[in-house]
Amino acid sequence: MTASVRKIVVIGLSLSSSWGNGHATTFRALLRGLKAEGQEVLFLERDVPWYASQRDLPTPDFCDLAFYDSVEDMIARFAPALAAADAVIIGSYVPDGPAVIDAVAALGVRALCFYDIDTPVTMAKLRRGEEDYLARRQVPLFDVYFSFSGGRVLDRLEAEFGARRAEALYCSVDETRYRPTGATPDLDLGYLGTYSPDRQPTLERLLIEPARRLPHCRFAVAGPQYPDDIDWPANVERIEHLAPADHAAFYSRQRFTLNVTRADMIAAGWSPSVRLFEAAACRTAIISDRWEGLEELLPEGEAVRIAAEAADVVAALSEISPDGRDRLAGNAMDRILAAHTGRARAGDLLHVLDSLPAQPLRRRA
């Protein structure tokens, strides 16, 4: 029996370093899934000092990884691989993104795709005329615009921005790396995420204020770039950065974990964070802010506890029994592992690529 093998080139923000970004873990889960499906992937990453000094996956075993210094350097060295690829996927937030897109499109690649891991942010930027990683005129260039947001966002991409075909490609989790460790939890509530000004008010409301009201409980916030002037209560542990290898252990320390969504993503809806999937895969009970589409993913009261105010978090920490917490965590884990692993997402990607106009496929015996 033979299996169709595609040669796929991905140009993304980062695969080698998870420092200060959620793209690396998203790409890692997806590309491991593609490897499991027998696909061949080359990932091209701009060599920048802030990731070069913080690389936690310099030599992945599931794809080829190469670095380039500039758009000109990338084209000079990798034009043959790009031209021969069955699909080229360019990600959001790639440095000099518009120039990268124009240069790759000029090669006449077989299938040119965009993977937006920041779709609501991208749409808001384009409406303001900000085109640092994607120009509005370029949206119709792509055979497929993959969006990590679904629902009505897909209609807006096509109707407002001219996408020829918008498809949901949610982030996913590598269940072989995100799973319960069996550790006894020593934190009542934790949060994992890089500092973001639009998320900070929610973090203040749903973690820092509850920490002040519950001085006997333990809290933790892990992630870089938080300003020095934040007034952290004494019962909040600060962890500057956690490599992905340490995420499962961190989630397993928590009785509950907090999911906080960026404002643009709340406004758009249907934009689940990779952290949501990772926590669920680790069987950690989730407290989340509310956004459209969440209850389709994780039903309220069954697989997630939704909080709007500090009092909601205090009530959850004070009133939910260990058995109730375990039911929330178990139901969320079952739902995420059933449909949101890297291999499941790789299948979604390949299904869309297979539906494009016929292209020559390389076959492996």
Rank of each mutant, 00 (worst) to 15 (best):
Q225A: 10
A263D: 15
L356S: 06
V10H: 03
Y226V: 09
R136E: 09
A249D: 14
E278V: 10
R156V: 08
N21F: 05
F142W: 03
P299R: 13
A163G: 06
I286V: 15
I230P: 05
R275V: 00
A66D: 06
D64P: 01
L214I: 02
E40R: 14
R238T: 11
C282L: 07
L34D: 02
T181F: 06
L192K: 02
D186E: 07
L107D: 06
D231P: 02
Y170T: 11
A211L: 13
L31H: 10
R165I: 06
Y133P: 01
S288F: 00
A99M: 08
A52Q: 12
R46F: 14
S318H: 13
E240C: 03
E40T: 14
I266N: 02
G342W: 00
D312F: 02
D102L: 07
D116H: 00
A279M: 07
R156P: 01
Q54S: 10
E237F: 06
D118E: 12
I306A: 06
Y195I: 10
V9G: 11
F250W: 13
I75S: 05
M74G: 14
P299L: 11
E296A: 12
K125F: 00
A311V: 12
L242V: 07
R128L: 14
E37W: 05
P95L: 13
V352P: 02
P357W: 00
H351F: 02
F78T: 10
T26K: 01
G190F: 03
T261F: 08
Q254K: 03
A84K: 12
V88N: 01
R364P: 00
V9P: 01
D102M: 07
S271F: 14
